[in-house]
């Protein structure tokens, strides 16, 4: 099988989707000639032309607003927000327009757009370019939310997002772009909204998504050497949320940990933890544990940056305490 990077898989997904569906246009800062700040759209302008890879001024609210308006007519824009940290600039168009249009117009119309963006730590990008803001999206009814951890999912989740009738926020992880895996893109993907069980074990369930899946798998290998076998669930999409897969494994195993790079307080991990506690209480041997980002801004210092989010070592340490 050929090896491919996460970045190349994303580009391939856009390329293939644009070839099949002429209603897809990519609009954003530096998406055309420059090829994307992280190179995801590199050379697509040569294949699909400047009419479909549209370089914009630095105007995030109007970029997303224009995409929403175009999507209301049935086009399928892929609006790129260079960093998820700029969500504050665009949150009105996303939360008040894109997420509400179907409902407040009584179901007559949808907004079939994809907002592609990237978040997370790992590149010393500092406090305004390293955040994990997926909780803002998950907290807004009317938005889908996909966060691929693997190269194959980078391809398949983006292709699936580009068939959805509703707005999808697609958050890539900036530290994964260069990650390489052997993939066969012709394999049938998991259905949209279905979590992947990346590793199966009988002692502990780790529920996570995006880059923390990679860390959780590393932690699971380390734990296995100490005789602790973990199940690792990659949620893939947070909306829809595949709670049934979580339930099945938590009820089977009886111990659960939730891992998220976003900050701990009122975050995705808090929501998952609450839901597991409420719905699987009778099966739990111990309280569900959150491992999440510290409630602090992200530093440029590599030492401080790494210390502000979960790592394989921290996940393994907490798991050991949980099992003790």
């Amino acid at each position: 099988m050929p090896a491919m990077t996460y970045r190349d898989a994303l580009r391939q997904a856009l390329d293939d989707a644009m070839t099949e569906d002429k209603t897809i246009v990519v609009i954003g800062e530096e998406v055309g000639r420059y090829g994307g700040a992280y190179g995801v759209t590199k050379d697509l302008i040569k294949v699909h032309g400047p009419e479909r890879l549209i370089d914009t001024p630095i105007s995030e609210p109007a970029i997303i607003g224009t995409a929403v308006g175009a999507a209301m007519t049935g086009l399928r824009p892929v609006a790129e927000l260079m960093y998820i940290d700029f969500l504050g600039m665009t949150m009105d168009q996303l939360a008040n327009q894109a997420a509400k249009i179907r409902y407040m117009f009584g179901g007559q119309i949808g907004v079939p757009m994809v907002l592609r963006t990237q978040g997370g730590t790992g590149r010393s990008a500092g406090a305004q370019h390293s955040q994990s803001l997926e909780a803002w999206i998950m907290h807004t009814p009317g938005l889908r939310l996909a966060m691929p951890a693997t190269v194959a999912d980078a391809y398949h989740l983006l292709r699936q997002s580009l068939t959805k009738p509703d707005p999808v926020v697609f958050i890539e992880h900036k530290a994964l772009y260069t990650r390489k895996e052997e993939v066969d893109l012709s394999d049938d993907p998991l259905p949209w909204g279905k979590a992947a069980v990346r590793r199966q074990g009988d002692d502990l369930v780790i529920v996570t998504y995006s880059r923390q899946v990679i860390y959780a798998l590393e932690a699971a290998e380390a734990l296995a050497k100490k005789g602790i076998e973990a199940t690792v669930i990659d949620l893939r999409t947070l909306n829809p949320l595949d709670f049934e897969t979580i339930r099945t494994h938590v009820e089977r195993v009886g111990k659960a940990m939730v891992v998220s790079e976003g900050v701990m307080t009122s975050g995705v991990a808090a929501e998952l933890c609450a839901r597991i506690s409420e719905e699987c209480f009778d099966f739990l041997e111990q309280p569900v544990i959150r491992v999440a980002g510290e409630d602090i801004p992200i530093s440029v210092s590599q030492e401080l940056e790494a210390g502000s989010v979960p790592s394989a070592r921290i996940i393994a340490e907490v798991a050991e305490r949980l099992m003790a």
């Binding site: 609210p61 607003g65 224009t66 929403v68 308006g69 175009a70 999507a71 209301m72 007519t73 086009l75």
Partner: peptide
């Protein structure tokens, strides 16, 4: 003011089509 961006998007779609 939000409808101003949306209306611009409608025009964008007309042009694209």
């Amino acid at each position: 003011g939000a409808q101003v961006s949306l209306g611009t998007g409608l025009a964008f779609a007309n042009r694209y089509r």
